[in-house]
Structure formats: structure tokens, C-alpha cells
Design a protein around this nucleic acid. Structure first.
Lengths: 303, 303
DNA sequence: GTATGCAGTAAGTTCAGCTTATGACCAACG
DNA sequence: CGTTGGTCATAAGCTGAACTTACTGCATAC
């Protein structure tokens, strides 16, 4: 009769996830449970609280006012629990727990990989997972709580829009390189304007890199003749190697295939890509996350 | 291998209780568990956290530094959970959950009783429990979290020392009355000095009331000749009725036995007793506790 | 129409956390 | 000195909460 049953944190976490995902099935996927389990636990929570917490609609569910209220409290509770875990990590000096990183491919394959291997060998309890994702997707994952850190890039001409409540740490600034087939003749210090008549290999406009290079070409007074488009940098480099044209790409993106092509630093203009680690402000207080962030910065600087 | 197991709130509550009680057995009593269960859960928590949280000594246990750290976080978590429960109560307008009150006997038997019956009939989900306790004991219970509200009294000459982090609400101020056997002759408006030669019935000095009356007598220029001592007000009134002497007692303490004795308001000096409800600041945010506090104030005012 | 997404219900299974029982240890006391 | 009463820890068994795998109902999409 009395409702002295304390609110269960597992169920609160579940409610929060339902709120974020907008559906019971989505929450179930995020939590690694079956929708059935989520539905049952939600029913228990509604019985416990004596209020209806979600509005059922044919297309998923939405939190009611009370549901949102409770979900906000859930967020608080989870934050404190995370802070407690952080205290413990600090106290006994061991880093532990899961840290999930989303990174753009070129970063993931270079310094993120290096940092991850170093951290894993140093802290056995640290459990690192890397997801390769484009910046926009990486930020989505960050906000949904699916990852703790996002390594994103930003180009000239294409400002990066950061959401609220996140903290950004600059990792690395690198020049965009002119990538040409081996044996390509041309100035040792090429300018973009020299390439007005070349065939181009380029990322699509949807990718920041593609948009940045295309904008730079226009600013240099020509529209590039694009022969080959792919959002996969590895594919682009091979396309250049095969002679389909030239490309302008961030140095890290070419790192592993540098031998197959010719690289020259582009002058006039000097285009750069900035790599940034982004975390939710609350997450960054976790020592393990902070340590990973620091390790990423170290590894990037060593480049 | 990985310690991704989230900290369990049940275990955190347990740790907090161990910290407050200073022993596993004490925590077990407070939580309604066997010491065995507490010991096991504590072991699990220490395994989860990878740190030793208590120092075992033959005479109970004390929290280590890390233990205190974690216990403080536990307090935070429990506060947020309580706030969430409060939100829910506010949202659906129903008061519920347990509210435990400690009160001095005279208050418990009069307005606390009235308020409790009224509240219970009005809010079925509200689950009220009253413990009769002296002020010092009541405040102990309050700080240990065994009760949510303490109704304590304060006399002239005997200031009440309130601990930190508590909030006091004045409930009632009442005069101390001269209690005499029926048929006792004396001034209609008696002064304390008139009673210098009387036989006295009095609470012990350990009780605030006894100390206050004795101090008042000395201030009036005499040392009372005490014939009968008890810390039980009901006993004192009967002792007066039986003719063992006169007494000066708070009006509420005599309420139920007024017919057996003669009551006159004491003038010169006018001694008063102040009744106060005390709650921990964090607890008072619970709507059910606030409602009980308000109901106590109402019932006291109706006196 | 069939197919595919959703949420909810029923029944079976597993495992965390409880109890009881027991042992080891220490302090106070006759 | 043993006894008694307190502490905490460990072992073994039991119960129930919370999961899974079904399967149903119901919308929308093709």
C-alpha cells in the first residue's frame, strides 16, 4: 500500500534512455536488452511512481511532463554516480571502466590508434572502444551518450558547429597536401591556381574536406574538373595513384599510402585541417576520459 | 576484468549507514537486515570499487578515506533520489511514503496525536510513525536519519543547542503553570516567591524542565525543597494530586489530568516553554515531511 | 494483400541477495 | 581462567526480481 519502494536507478537510467531515443525499442538497443525487458521495467517504474511517464503513440513513445521531470533527476543521479566512480579512480590511481571514442578515419588510423594501444598496455582495467565516424555522426553519438569522446575535424571555409554543454580540446593542426601520381611534374611549391586545368579526385560536397577544397578552388578562380568522388580517403588516394587526377587532402589521410603517391605541401593558399577532441563537460571529469583525452593530445602532438 | 559494473545504490546506502552507525551490526539493525547480508554487500562493494572502504577493528569498523569519499557521494545520490520522489509527490498531488516523527511526550500526546490522525485519514498513502523521545535523544535520531522530524522543547534558562544543517519551525509557546492539589489555598495570581516554603514535586535536573524551574526558584531567591522527583510528567501530576507538593509544569503536560489538580497561571516570573519542530534541511524539501510539519504547526496553534 | 516496424503479455530460466548456521576473534567480568 | 556477549566473516541454501524467448495486437509502408 505504501510507496516506500525507493526509486531504482536501473529503471531511472532506462527512463532517461527512452527519453533520449524516443522509443522503447531504441532504448532497448542502447541498453543491450530486449524491448520486452524495457517495457516491463517501464511498467514497474510507472507503478512505483504512480504516474504515467510516457505517452504511447503508434510511432514510438514520448515522455510526459512527469516523465521528463523524472528523467532530469535520473540524469543528476547518473552524474553523481559517475563522479563517485571518478573519485575512486583518482583515489586509487588506476584508470578503469569503459571509454568510447568516435573518431574520423584518418585520426582513428593514426594517432588514435597509437594512443589506444599505449593506454591499453598501461592500464589493464581501461576498456577502450573506437568507432570510426564522420564528425556530424560522431557528435550525434556524443550527445546521445554512445561515446565519451569525439575526434572531429574542421577545415578552412567550413566552420564546425559545436553543440552546447561540450568541451573541445585542440589536438592537431596539419596542412592539406597536394597528392599527385608518382612522377607527376609540376612546381616544387605548387599553388592551387596551378591546378586549374588538372583532373581532380575529391571527397563529396557533403564531406567538409570536399567542400573546403572546392571552396578554395573557387576562391583561386576556377571550378575543379572532378573525375572521381568518394567519401573514403583510402579510395581517393588509390584513385590518385592510379592516375585519375590530383587531390588535396589532409596529410594524415595519406599517411599510410604515402609511398604510392607524391606529396607536396600546397602553398598559396595554405589550407589546414584542425583536429579536435570533443567531450560532454560532465563526462570529462571522469579521470579515465580525461586521461584518454590527454593521451590523444600527446599522440597527435608527436605527429 | 573490466569494472564497468555501475555503483549500486543499495550498496552505497549501506556504506553510508555503516559510516553513520560505526559498525556493520548497527547498519544491519538500521536497515532491517542481518549483519551477514551487510558484510557480504560491503565485500561486493569493495570488490567493485577496488579499494578498501572500511578499517576493520574488533570494536566495529570505521570508514577509510576512500570510504568517506564514497559515502559522501552516496549521500548526494540519496538526496537526489529523495528530491525525485518529492517531485513526483508534488506532480500528482498525493502525499506518500514514510514520515517518522520523534516528539516529547507532552507534545506527542496532544497536538502531534491530533495532527497524525487528521493526516492519516486525509492521505491514505502517508505512513506516519511517532516515537516519544526526550529532546536530546530526538535530535540524535534526527541526525542519524531515524526520524524526519523532531518535536523538541526549550525552556527559559535552558537554551536549546541545535546541530548544523537543520531547520527549526516554531510550533507553540505556552506558559508554565503552577500545579497544586485540589483545594490548595493561595493567591489567585501566584508568584514564584510565594512558594519558597512549599514542598516541591519536580523533574530531575537532567530534564530541561527541572533545570529551568530550579533556576527560576534560585533567581526568585530560594532553593526549592524537593520531595518527589520523576522524569515522567504523568507521574509528577499524580504526585501533586496525591498531595506531595506543588509543581511548575508546562500546560500541555498537565492537559490530560487537569481535572485531578488545580492549575493557576504563574506570574512573576512568567515562565514559558517553546515547542519547536526540527528537520534536516534536505529532508524538509520532501512534500510529505513539509505537510506533516505544517499540520503540526496548525494543530499546535489550535491549542 | 503481405511485410515491417512498433509495444505489450505470458511463461520459463537464471542469478543476485537474502537468511540461517557456524566459526574466529576480542573485551569485559565473575 | 573460562564464560559471556559483542564484533565480523564465511558457507550453504532459498527466494524472487529481472531477464529471455516466445507470441499477440496494431499501425504504417509497399
Amino acid at each position: 500500500m505504501t510507496n516506500d519502494a525507493a526509486l531504482d536507478v536501473g529503471r531511472l537510467r532506462l527512463l532517461r534512455e527512452i527519453g533520449v531515443r524516443g522509443s522503447i525499442a531504441g532504448a532497448a538497443r542502447a541498453l543491450g536488452l530486449t524491448p520486452s525487458a524495457v517495457s516491463q521495467q517501464l511498467a514497474v517504474l510507472e507503478r512505483d511512481t504512480g504516474a504515467s511517464l510516457v505517452d504511447r503513440s503508434p510511432r514510438g513513445v514520448v515522455l510526459t511532463g512527469t516523465g521528463r521531470l523524472l528523467a532530469a533527476r535520473a540524469e543528476e543521479v547518473l552524474d553523481v554516480l559517475a563522479a563517485a566512480r571518478a573519485d575512486l579512480d583518482r583515489a586509487n590511481g588506476t584508470l578503469g571502466g569503459p571509454v568510447r571514442v568516435a573518431a574520423v578515419a584518418s585520426a582513428a588510423l593514426t594517432f588514435v590508434s597509437v594512443a589506444a594501444l599505449a593506454l591499453a598496455s598501461e592500464h589493464a582495467a581501461l576498456d577502450l572502444a573506437v568507432t570510426v565516424a564522420e564528425p556530424s555522426r560522431a557528435l550525434e553519438l556524443l550527445l546521445a551518450g554512445d561515446v565519451d569522446l569525439a575526434v572531429v575535424d574542421e577545415y578552412d571555409y567550413v566552420p564546425l558547429a559545436l553543440p552546447e554543454h561540450v568541451v573541445a580540446v585542440g589536438l592537431h593542426a596539419e596542412p592539406l597536401m597536394l597528392v599527385t601520381p608518382k612522377g607527376w611534374c609540376g612546381p616544387r611549391h605548387p599553388a592551387l591556381a596551378d591546378l586549374a586545368d588538372a583532373d581532380w579526385v575529391m571527397p563529396p560536397d557533403e564531406a567538409s574536406c570536399g567542400l573546403a577544397v572546392r571552396s578554395a578552388c573557387r576562391a583561386a578562380g576556377f571550378e575543379p574538373r572532378v573525375r572521381w568522388v568518394s567519401d573514403d580517403m583510402l579510395v581517393l588516394v588509390r584513385a590518385v595513384a592510379a592516375g585519375h587526377g590530383v587531390a588535396v587532402l589532409p596529410r594524415l589521410s595519406v599517411a599510410d599510402d604515402a609511398a604510392a603517391v607524391q606529396l607536396r605541401r600546397l602553398h598559396e593558399p595554405e589550407l589546414t585541417r584542425r583536429l579536435t577532441a570533443v567531450a560532454r563537460a560532465s563526462t570529462l571529469t571522469r579521470p579515465s576520459v580525461a586521461a584518454v583525452s590527454a593521451a590523444l593530445a600527446d599522440a597527435a602532438r608527436a605527429r
